[in-house]
Computed example of a mutant assay.
Amino acid sequence: MGKIIVTGASGQFGSAAARQLLGKCAAEDLVFLSRTPESLAEFAETGAHVRQADFDNPASLAAATRGGEKMLLISTTRVGTRVEQHRNAVEAAVANGVGHIVYTSVIGGGMAQHPGIEQHDHYATEQLIEKSGAAWTHLRNSLYSNAVATAMAIPALEAGSKPDNAGDGKVAMVSREDCVASAVGVLTQEGHANKAYDITGPERLSIPQALAMISEMAGKPIELIPVDDEGMYQYFDSLGVPRTASDILPDGPIPWASEGMVTFGQSIREGYFDVLSDDVEMITGQKPRTLHSVLEQYKDLWPK
C-alpha cells in the first residue's frame, strides 16, 4: 500500500483519523498535513511524516502531497470560500500522482439542488474531485451527535429553551467517531473507489425528540420554540453572529455565519437529511452509536 495523506491532521477529525491509522499502518506510510506542523509533534515522534500545508498556498501543497497514493481530504471550515481551498489540494495531489481522494462531504452532497449553504460547497467539491482524474470516495456525513450533545445541548439547558426551525424533520445523527472509523476503513480497505456512502447513525430522530432526550437525561426542562427561518436568523442576530460568510470579521469573536445554521435547519425540515443507511456497519464492521450513548459521553459538560 502506498502512502496515505491526511489533511487537517491537527483538527478533531484529522487527529482522530491519524491515531486510528497509526494502529493499522506502518508510520512511515503515513503523511499528516497541517498549517501548524508543530501541533503534530505526537505523530512526528511515531515516525510518521509531518508536513506543513496551507490550502491557500498552492506552492506549499505541491511539496506536502508528494509520494502519496491516497488522500483523506477533510473539508475545511471556511464555508462559502472553501471550494477554492479544496481545489488547490486536489490539483496538487493529482499532479503528484495521488490516485484516490476520500472526501468528508455531507448527506445530500451529490444533489445539484439543495437549500443548504454548506451543502453547496460539498457539492462543488464532490464535482471537482470526480473530474480530477483520481478515483474518489465521498463520505456523506450526517449531523454529528457530538455537536448535538455540546453546541446544541449546553445553551439549551442554560437558557431552558431553544428556538428551532427544523420542525419535525428527521435526521439520523451520527457520532464523529463513527465518521472517522468509516474514513479509516475506506483508506485501508479495497473496493471503495468511485462510491459515495451515507454515514449515518442507527435511528431517525427530529430535533424536538433529541432535545426531549437531553432534557430527560439532565432532569431540566427545555422549551422548544418553533420559529421560521427569519426568526432563526433574528435569534442568531441577537447573539451577534454574522448572517453570511462575507460578513465574518477576520479574527473576530465568531468565526462562522448563521446562514449555514439556518439553512441546515431548513434542510432538515424539508426532508433532505431524512436518510438512514447501514454504510457505517458495512465499512467498519461495527454498528453505529446511538444518540443516547453520545449524550452520555458528554453529559458531565452540561450545566448542573
Rank of each mutant, 00 (worst) to 15 (best):
G2Q: 13
Q12W: 06
F13P: 05
F13M: 12
C25D: 13
A27K: 11
E28W: 00
L33M: 13
S34K: 13
R35F: 13
S39G: 00
S39N: 14
A59N: 10
L61N: 00
K70V: 01
M71I: 04
L72Q: 02
S75H: 08
G80Q: 04
V83D: 07
E84L: 09
Q85T: 06
H86K: 02
N88R: 06
N88P: 00
A93V: 09
A93Y: 08
V94L: 01
V98D: 09
H100T: 12
V106H: 00
H114Y: 13
P115K: 04
Q119K: 02
A124C: 06
S132K: 09
T137V: 05
N141Y: 05
A149E: 01
I154C: 07
A156E: 06
G167A: 07
M173I: 08
V174E: 01
S175G: 12
A181V: 01
V184M: 02
T188S: 10
Y197S: 03
E203Q: 06
A210S: 15
L211E: 05
M213Y: 06
E216A: 14
I222P: 11
L224D: 06
G231P: 10
Q234N: 13
Y235I: 01
F236A: 09
D237P: 03
S238C: 08
L239Y: 08
L249T: 15
P253N: 10
V262I: 13
T263P: 04
Y272C: 07
L276M: 10
V280N: 08
I283G: 11
K287A: 15
T290P: 04
S293N: 13
L295W: 11
Y298S: 05
W302V: 06
K304I: 01
